[in-house]
Design a protein around this nucleic acid. Structure first.
Lengths: 341, 341
DNA sequence: CGTTTTTCCGTAAACGTTTACGAGAACACA
DNA sequence: TGTGTTCTCGTAAACGTTTACGGAAAAACG
């Protein structure tokens, strides 16, 4: 069924070497011959077998995107990633690269899966999401020298890989600024309990913001919960029961915010009226929730494109004439003021 | 860097044939030898090069999932697909298959991309999403005999491929039942204007439902719009301006429903009070919208798993002893009654 | 002990490419 | 005409596997 380069060569009474060179745009082939090859290829529906060229070239021309669904994502499903993926894959496609998505089982350790991807040479490089503060995957990839980039920062590794993150720290600070400006002094912070790095960054910004306004950090106002709606629902009452309860809450995750608002509602508190709510990392959910939640929005699709560029710039095969280079960027979030504060 | 089967063989003073057989669990290898090979493989971090085995075996052990982002999805991004993908890839992974995601550019024709995937033998099979009523992709894959399955039905092809869909027809009918039971006789239907097949199925069910209750179809109450929020926003006023306006609306898409509700709000109508709203295909957005929208919910993650099973059952290499078979299923949706009707 | 069967392993071909190398033809130049 | 250069192409090796085949050794059998 599938036609090979031999069929094409035979059909043209030409050697396979010439066919290959013609197809790959090499200079040492007669313009006329090239045209004939191109025409015949189209006519016979020929395209070079990917496995064959991968094997010969030692490159698969594909990239793996690795994310780990959290437990309980089956219904909710991190809408965060889709626009990012759209951007990522669009830019990769411009360079003839395909995208593989490796998810792993929800909640299960991904290291084994990653090892297989690497050792098996399934892809040329990996893009890591859900970066943890200490991330085995980064350590591993660094150790074995496999090319990768990360969406999100980490303390692991030695910064020799490209990474793109959003400025959680600054967003945390800005949220505090905003809430203080609106008269709040008792501001709570709720973040995921996992080792996810952005939880720390957010809290740093939150602390810095408070400090700048001369407000002391009250640990009764900080809580960690599982990074989903149930987590937010469970943990929000905890800060509300502080001796001196908060008048505002910053949620470090949209799902947790939604769960938190449910808990607040059950306590008879309406966001935007009885309590102010901000959430870091806006998603469509924040917008459609009632009241619409004031949130900080990242430019996901451009981020996807950009991280693809950064990854490619770090790969010798794709880097420009100046050679490969490692770029690391932190992008600002845009405040979307809505009705919850 | 990467170790090959030759390294392993040399290290063990053994032939590469034996190593391969040991690794692949073939019977004709001494138990003792096998263990030594396995140990050495682990020790040397060896795993067979994927390109090599793909080339030799004529199978890539990966599947492509092909979806087409609609224009304007950059922020919203079809949350529908993530849980489905989680299920799909989980089941595929159980069989040692990897998942490739091919998106194409938003709004752009995917045929070229598909041809490349097929001719290049990038994957062993394809899963198609966003099936259209007449779908070139299905025609093409059928014609060239490339294995595939679809999420959603189509009129194209001759039903010789596995497909899994949700029962839009029945959901449309049930929505009518529900609304009639609640006293409505003037029920509008809003669906996407594209050739997406589910739009037709939905409308069939809607018509059948009306008929069963002796209500005549009024074409002033049916409208098509672009399948996003803007489309819903634009088209909803149109049905509201009918000579005899509707007291209920069924939306065939969550994004359109949200846009529609915005339009309704601007006309001073509150869903659940001044007008009833149902939406086919629930997403988290429906749940968090205010008022929470009554909607019909599919079991996305199980559907993903199931379609993977169905696809595998149709592939000779994975089918059981009874040989490959084509399964087609239509799954019911679960009504989630909320506050909008 | 001779014969047959079984167990185990090495050899080599094949999968479909790309590419280094070299060679013939055409051309330029003196 | 002789020499050097440029164009163009064919040859063959290599990428890392899997697997059909055959053969040697061991085991089973009478």
């Amino acid at each position: 069924m599938a036609s090979s380069i031999h069929d094409l060569a035979r059909h043209l009474n030409i050697s396979i070497g010439t066919v290959s060179r013609a197809l790959n745009g090499r200079a040492d082939v007669n313009a006329d011959t090239r045209q004939r090859v191109l025409d015949a290829a189209r006519q016979l529906n020929y395209a070079p077998n990917q496995s064959g060229r991968s094997l010969r070239q030692g490159a698969t021309h594909s990239i793996a995107f690795m994310l780990q669904p959290h437990q309980g994502d089956q219904q909710y499903g991190e809408p965060f990633f889709i626009p990012f993926l759209i951007g990522l894959q669009a830019k990769l496609a411009e360079h003839g690269l395909d995208l593989m998505v490796v998810m792993g089982e929800p909640g299960k350790y991904q290291q084994e899966r990653l090892r297989r991807v690497v050792e098996t040479r399934l892809v040329d490089a990996v893009v890591l999401a859900n970066t943890r503060r200490e991330d085995d995957r980064i350590d591993y990839l660094g150790k074995v020298g496999f090319p990768f980039a990360t969406l999100g920062r980490s303390q692991s590794g030695d910064d020799t890989y490209p990474s793109l993150d959003i400025d959680f720290e600054r967003a945390g600070e800005e949220a505090v600024d905003r809430l203080v400006a609106r008269g709040h002094r008792r501001i709570a912070a709720i973040r995921p309990s996992l080792d996810l790095n952005f939880g720390y960054l957010f809290l740093d910004g939150y602390g810095k913001g408070l400090q700048r306004h001369g407000i002391e950090v009250d640990h009764e106002l900080i809580a960690d919960g599982f990074i989903n709606e149930a987590g937010g629902y469970e943990v929000t009452p905890r800060v509300m029961l502080a001796k001196d309860p908060p008048t505002a809450i910053i949620f470090n995750n949209d799902a947790m915010a939604l769960g938190g608002c449910k808990a607040l509602a059950e306590m008879g508190m309406r966001p935007g009226q009885d309590i102010a709510v901000n959430v870091i990392v806006d998603t469509p959910l924040c917008r459609y929730f009632s009241p619409a939640l004031t949130a900080f929005r990242p430019a996901l699709e451009p981020m996807g494109r950009r991280l693809a560029e950064m990854l490619l710039a770090s790969l010798p095969a794709f880097a420009g004439p100046e050679g490969p280079r490692v770029i690391r960027e932190v992008w600002p979030l845009e405040l979307v003021a809505r009705d919850s504060d």
